[in-house]
């Protein structure tokens, strides 16, 4: 049983409770706090996924910055794909490329895979240890190193600090 895991889980549950109730009356806040700590103590003794989250100030700052990096990438992805769809010539050059990730933790890889699926023309197809097979709508490079830099470089920089 780890204090850090329980702390993170109960904070998440508590925020969810407050959002769903949409009020800050003392009764609701107190019962929510008791319930969220109780539930995370019962069910989250061995949450391995949350174990890798780092709580240093630098990691928290990077998590905050990551939201903006990711939103910008999401908007860019949509404009890119939308422009490809509209153009009559349909300029696509699809293919499945291989990339290698430096991340070790499971939650880091999870968030990386989710981010990659939502950003410029890329989609995770298969995944073995540190190899990811990505369907790319416009293949710029078939080389593993170059493709890794092009697709996951911008996210990896942040996720390495956040989760390792």
């Amino acid at each position: 049983m780890k204090i850090k895991t329980i702390l993170i889980m109960s904070v998440i549950l508590f925020i969810g409770w407050l959002i769903m109730n949409n009020s800050l009356q003392p009764g609701i806040v107190i019962s929510g706090a008791i319930l969220s700590v109780g539930i995370s103590m019962i069910f989250c003794r061995y949450c391995r996924l949350i174990n890798d989250v780092r709580l240093t100030p630098k990691a928290l700052a990077y998590s905050f910055a990551y939201i903006f990096v990711f939103s910008w990438a999401l908007i860019k992805a949509n404009l890119d794909v939308a422009s490809r769809v509209i153009r009559p010539s349909l300029p696509i050059k699809p293919g499945i490329v291989q990339v290698r990730t430096k991340l070790k933790s499971k939650i880091g890889r999870l968030i990386l895979a989710n981010s990659v699926t939502l950003t410029p023309g890329t989609l995770i197809v298969e995944y073995h240890d540190d190899l990811m097979f990505i369907h790319w709508i416009d293949v710029k490079s078939e080389d593993v190193e170059k493709a890794s830099q092009e697709i996951i470089g911008q996210f990896e920089k942040y996720l390495e600090v956040m989760y390792g």
């Binding site: 794909v81 769809v85 696509i92 989609l123 369907h135």
Partner: peptide, 19 residues
């Protein structure tokens, strides 16, 4: 529109997810 125009399954999934 992308779902209609794209040539194969993977590209359709791409446009579907993002949009």
């Amino acid at each position: 529109l992308g779902l209609v125009r794209m040539p194969d399954v993977f590209n359709r999934i791409q446009t579907g997810t993002k949009a």
